[in-house]
Design a protein around this nucleic acid. Structure first.
Lengths: 188, 188
DNA sequence: TATTGCCTACCTAATGGTAGGATGTCAAGC
DNA sequence: GCTTGACATCCTACCATTAGGTAGGCAATA
């Protein structure tokens, strides 16, 4: 069980940094110190590995969202905590695993797609809840439906991460994130 | 010269759909009806092809932006015209070439990176100009610097394209784009 | 005659994946 | 307590395919 986790950890980093088509079993093998063929014992095919990665990553997201909920913060602070998840990715030169797989979607085995869609749905739903909460507390001034604001927020963070990782402009990422939240706070 | 253009056209579509690591010279060869080895006559290495693709794509962007400028539209309509560029990509199941390469940046030859950064800089600059123009005409109510709004706009569109392409939810893309513009228009 | 554009034929390295064997662990049966 | 069998984990060795790329030739064209 421990080796399986190490494989998943290594593979997750590789996917987030290089993409699903940008790494091989040989890369994982050399990282975890096991022979390439032995990896197939744990994950018979690369697609199996991909499906497992999506599961793990969705689980990580869920626990992060639950942790943030547990902090009992005002909505804007919850969003800031959500932004922090992307900041950590950026610092590790990692894309969001969902965003990375999304760009490669047309090359992936179809069995990976439902998990991928669910990942984005989960993000959107949580953000919509937080934004709706901020709206009903008169903390946010919403110009549209919470779901629409949620989609803008999610899209912008994915895009900002994508761009900042290649430009190396972390300050731009921070500014983008800040403006996203202050614009929700409205014209106070 | 004509074959070179056909190769570039084919390669561009392949990159935008499958990523730079998601296609091979064999794919292009079968599309343009030429032998794989002959491609190396036009583009000795895949990196050469990548650099050329970035040049072509940046040129396409430039002419589109100039065309939009020439329409002499109000700023919000210019942004809508800019959004249309992404809509066309989405309809063709294509990512933005810049966005696609950005995710794969860590696997690309370094000579491709400057062109990639310039691409994003060009987008941001143009958007900032349009948004500043809308601000100075009291069409937009800006809560931050035009460059910051530009980055939010660009990031959100890149992310929305990324997500919509995998969820298949074109309506969500449209709603996101609309909200981005209406939020700039302010609280009229 | 030199160059362009394409060809066939080939190369090396890497890809995801398989077959079958060695070692270890662990519980059931006597 | 000891054996036995089942299963898990890892190994070496191998496979077919594909990757990007090279060498050298042939025909057209300028």
């Amino acid at each position: 069980m421990e080796m399986k986790k190490r494989i998943l950890t290594s593979a997750q980093k590789l996917v987030q940094q290089r993409g699903f088509n940008g790494f091989s079993y040989a890369d994982i093998a050399s990282e975890v110190g096991i022979r390439k063929a032995s990896l197939h014992h744990h994950f018979p095919t690369k697609t199996d590995l991909g499906v497992a990665l999506l599961e793990v990553y969705s689980g990580q997201l869920d626990s992060e969202l639950k942790r943030i909920n547990g902090l009992l913060l005002p909505a804007d602070a919850k969003l800031a905590a959500y932004v922090a998840l992307y900041r950590y990715s950026l610092q590790a030169e990692c894309m969001c695993l969902g965003g990375m797989l999304a760009t490669e979607a047309l090359t992936l085995d179809a069995v990976m797609l439902p998990g991928l869609k669910r990942f984005f749905a989960r993000n959107t739903e949580w953000l919509a809840d937080v934004i709706a909460e901020g709206g009903s507390h008169q903390l946010f001034t919403l110009s549209g439906a919470p779901e629409d604001h949620a989609r803008v927020f999610l899209s912008a963070l994915q895009g900002a991460l994508l761009i900042a990782r290649v430009t190396g402009d972390c300050a731009a990422f921070e500014q983008t994130a800040r403006l996203l939240i202050t614009d929700l706070l409205g014209k106070g």
